[in-house]
Design a protein around this nucleic acid. Structure first.
Ligand SMILES: NC(=O)c1ccc[n+]([C@@H]2O[C@H](COP(=O)([O-])OP(=O)(O)OC[C@H]3O[C@@H](n4cnc5c(N)ncnc54)[C@H](O)[C@@H]3O)[C@@H](O)[C@H]2O)c1
Ligand SMILES: NC(=O)c1ccc[n+]([C@@H]2O[C@H](COP(=O)([O-])OP(=O)(O)OC[C@H]3O[C@@H](n4cnc5c(N)ncnc54)[C@H](O)[C@@H]3O)[C@@H](O)[C@H]2O)c1
Lengths: 208, 208
DNA sequence: ACAGTAATGTGAAATATTTCACATTACTGT
DNA sequence: ACAGTAATGTGAAATATTTCACATTACTGT
């Protein structure tokens, strides 16, 4: 099984749509429905399912509840996920205040910062001094971290997290981090994502 | 020329690294240097360049300044880019306060919100009432927008932006938006990005 | 001056991903 | 009861992307 990041992201998107469809009372969907919703194709949808052994009903599409539970199981959404965030700046706090994680079983259990002004053990989740990161990860068996510190602090933060037992991170620092092969890093560089849009909307010169 | 989003993103990453390398006094780089820096391969780097007609010096790699200016030209970084943000919530404000855009020629000229409490025409950039979005885009010839409103408001926001003359958006709302074919949308769903990491660090069952 | 070599640049091969084409199947309607 | 059909599921084909292999070239060192 390859499970490239792309396919997994699509499976999450299918699930996302299905949950919304369920909430408005829909009971059955077709590969076509999913395709339409994501701007993809019906074949793509069925191929994705086929790759993971997810099946529907010939002629009658997919029972929404069944499909949803198959996807949830596959994607590991039946377990809760605790995460910590390194860096309680603009982005760290935006994530902290976002209310969309909880209902998907993602709990931000703490943020960490080296700026005493940012520290606030009373907030929910608490913002703790960075010195407590290592111990906290171990004690609470956290395996997923978010890196929202400036780029020059990102590698040391990652090293510390790895040492403490973290297995994968979502990294917002605009720098390519080094890690062991079995460690999973998902890099998101928001500025580059913005610049990419800018590139594609530029009037083309003589490209063909 | 295909110019898939992926390649363009890599070109931006090369540029990113080169700027940092330049700042520490490096004058020459090799495809190997770039590959190492991004966790890619030297062939990939040269192939990417080759596809866009970027050339170096056989045997002597690339002169950093030359390469940088070729990439900058190609990626359209010689022009400034003005952008607006719809939604001055957690994420909109995080972007507003981020200081890394300006030095890359990206200027957030205004945010827009329908919550009077959020509006602040004195801030820099100003947070304006949503009613002014349409007129503002037209007057200031903005062609790039960011969607940072809740998902239920995202499509109407996009429609409005398109009507006003926007050519592409970075969309944070967790929903697949409909737009004309020649309109460019870059979707970023932060929750799914986090869930993807969670998926990959799960102890595998019997996948092979 | 020139041999050795370490780099680029790029077709071709390999691999990954998407799309096509169609056999299979179960529902629907009479 | 059964013919028609509208859907799935999936090998095979097509396409896209990455990697290989190596000819070319210009620098380096003597
Ligand atoms: N905010 C954005 O819109 C945006 C856009 C693109 C990229 N990014 C990147 O995301 C990351 C976070 O951005 P931000 O805007 O939240 O930055 P920020 O400066 O607002 O916050 C960074 C936080 O990290 C803390 N910090 C610094 N060094 C630390 C250390 N060694 N240990 C612990 N904490 C430390 C700081 O005290 C601060 O609170 C940065 O790498 C930034 O380049 C952010
Ligand atoms: N903050 C995060 O970490 C995070 C994570 C994942 C996804 N998202 C997505 O990003 C988007 C923004 O998230 P956020 O956390 O900033 O949300 P938020 O609720 O903090 O901010 C949304 C803002 O949009 C404004 N708004 C609502 N309807 C509007 C309308 N019709 N016109 C103009 N303004 C309107 C609200 O007043 C608010 O200020 C949302 O779609 C959210 O689902 C955010």
């Amino acid at each position: 099984m390859k499970s490239a990041k792309q396919i997994i992201l699509r499976l999450f998107q299918y699930r996302e749509f299905l949950m919304r469809a369920k909430s408005i009372g829909i009971k059955n969907v077709y590969s076509d429905t999913l395709a339409e919703a994501l701007g993809s194709t019906a074949t793509q949808v069925r191929k994705d399912f086929s790759l993971f052994g997810i099946t529907g009903n010939k002629r009658a599409g997919y029972k929404l509840d069944d499909l949803l539970s198959q996807l949830s199981e596959l994607l590991g959404k039946n377990q809760k996920q605790k995460i910590i965030i390194a860096g309680a700046g603009n982005l760290g706090k935006a994530l902290m205040q976002y209310d969309g994680f909880k209902k998907e079983g993602i709990e931000i259990v703490a943020l960490f910062d080296n700026d005493p002004v940012k520290v606030n053990i009373e907030s929910s989740p608490p913002i703790l001094p960075i010195e407590r990161l290592f111990e906290f990860i171990g004690k609470n068996k956290i395996n997923l971290g978010v890196i929202a510190v400036p780029y020059f602090a990102a590698q040391q933060m990652l090293d510390l997290m790895i040492l403490a037992g973290i297995k994968g991170v979502l990294n917002f620092a605009p720098i390519s981090l080094k890690s062991p092969k079995d460690f999973f890093i998902n890099d998101i560089n928001l500025r580059l994502e913005l610049e990419t849009v800018a590139y594609f909307i530029k009037p083309l010169k003589q490209e063909d």
